[in-house]
């Protein structure tokens, strides 16, 4: 079993997560990938999706992010996301608000292709989350 590494999730407002973890699943722009300790250095943009981190103490933490980017080094993973939500703390109501925000982007006339794509992905994820939430 590989050792642990430092996982940090940072939003513009504050540091949301800073923990030692064994592995983290990250929704990369070109596909999801899992980071383990000793991973080759990568800088990647992220699409909206779920980050799954396994802390060294066991268990899984799922966090929904609204896009961002990450920097991987052999000893650390830093995710910079503008919006992040702990899935355990998300209920139907907050999800509905998010879906509405994303749909507003889809229906707005001046959104760029990039924004449209991100909103589309976000809605897909949110719908899935909605079916999982209680």
């Amino acid at each position: 079993m590989a050792g642990t590494f430092k996982f940090e999730l940072v939003s513009p407002e504050r540091v949301l997560v800073s923990a030692d973890v064994e592995e983290v699943l990250v929704p990369g722009e070109d596909g999801d990938f899992t980071v383990l300790a000793g991973h080759a250095p990568v800088i990647s943009t992220l699409r909206p999706g779920v980050i799954e981190s396994k802390p060294s103490g066991g268990g899984v933490t799922r966090i929904f992010i609204d896009g961002g980017f990450c920097e991987v080094t052999p000893t650390s993973l830093t995710v910079l996301a503008e919006k992040a939500h702990d899935i355990a703390a998300m209920d139907k109501k907050t999800i509905a608000v998010q879906v509405m925000a994303a749909e507003a982007v889809l229906h707005s006339s001046d959104a760029t292709d990039e924004q449209l794509r991100a909103a589309h992905i976000a809605i897909g994820h949110l719908k899935w989350l909605d079916s999982q939430a209680n």
Partner: peptide, 23 residues
Amino acid sequence: AVNEYEPSEEAILGFLLKRNIST
């Protein structure tokens, strides 16, 4: 030699420059 970039460094740079303004 040290870093890999996904998708490409130009794409990331463009993406980050936009975010950087808000930051």
